[in-house]
Design a protein around this nucleic acid. Structure first.
Lengths: 192, 192
DNA sequence: ATTGGATGTCTACGACCGTAGACCGCACTG
DNA sequence: CAGTGCGGTCTACGGTCGTAGACATCCAAT
């Protein structure tokens, strides 16, 4: 990203952070298999070996990227009644085909092909990310409904941003948001 | 799959078919980047070069795999009213964590990380697969609703089979089917 | 029986991958 | 000013990848 290569004073923490940010960008854009250690290192202004020195291996680097990328709380608020509409709005907005966005969902979708990467993401979701959305829901099977919501989000992200399916990329944002809101409401409600 | 390597008489059509089937299995299991030409060839009982001889390149082989894999009509019937329930049943059944299934959705999810593979799948969906489901719906924006249904299916497949999210893998099949039916109904209806 | 084209294999090249160990130089402490 | 330890780089190894060209082999038609 930042081609501006100011020499950067010797600072272990800052360098580590630069590598991590570069890795988030690279893994999100190209997936686990598509992003190389040399590429991550070059974008951070260092050598490939330094990456392994700080993170041990590409796999461990990816694990830190996943934890960092999945960490920030989702953009949605905390009113359960408004949740579906908020998610729908944010989803349609952030999957706009015109603007390429950095997102944990893109990271997940583009890295799902690698078994080790899938396992790492599984652990991250099972450990932290899943429970956050679950906490916003109430009633029975809140965890199942939360994961279904995540599934719908991921699916839309896949079709609209990665595969660039015609009807979804060309859809009227307002209409798409409305329809997604309805579907998300169906998934949010206790249902019984 | 079939480790039985009977010499197989010289038969161009049969060999081509064996390679294609082997490629479907390999690409679906490991994704575009994860499956190698040598691996595909070995499983078909031939050499790597023969693959390129018959299909030109790995990319063209993948294109044929996608077209073949997306070709068979979805398992669902043709009664629009029963569509959501049928899809939900088939989806929950075929994403059973115990039984690893061959499916175009798995192929898509595990290959989405590669840009060229994504483009090939885009063309296949835009050209054929998308319109098939669209034809089963009626009302305005049928294509958009069809793609949203595909998105939900893909998302559930991702979370349940690839990432193996806890609440979805451990869910009671009947309850999960019921909830998915509701969500699919919300996506199927004209909505206005 | 021979010939010729189709069918399949062998060897190899160049590129890229993740990673290991030896080495270098700056900055700070004494 | 000397030296030491941390931050960083260089070189290289073994491996796998996709693919190209020359070569072998089998089957069918003559």
């Amino acid at each position: 990203m930042s081609v501006t290569q100011q020499p950067r004073r010797r600072d272990a923490a800052a360098t580590r952070e630069a590598i991590l940010n570069s890795a988030i960008e690279a893994f999100t854009r190209a997936g686990y298999d598509g992003a190389g250690v040399r590429e991550v290192a070059a974008a951070a202004g260092v050598t490939a070996m330094l990456v392994n020195r700080y993170f041990g291996s590409k796999e461990q680097l990816f694990a830190e990227v996943v934890n960092r990328s999945f960490a920030p709380p989702t953009i949605v608020g905390d009113d359960p009644a408004e949740l579906p509409a908020q998610i729908a709005r944010a989803l349609v907005d952030r999957t706009d085909p015109a603007a390429a966005q950095l997102s944990p969902f893109l990271l997940m979708l583009r890295s799902a092909g690698n078994p080790r990467a899938a396992e790492i993401m599984h652990d991250a979701i099972a450990g932290h990310a899943g429970s956050r959305l679950t906490g916003l829901l109430d009633g029975a099977d809140a965890d199942q409904r939360a994961e279904l919501i995540l599934a719908l989000i991921a699916g839309v992200w896949l079709m609209r941003s990665v595969i660039a399916t015609p009807a979804l990329t060309g859809a009227d944002p307002a209409a798409l948001t409305a329809r997604l809101t309805i579907a998300l409401q169906a998934l949010s409600g206790p249902g019984h």
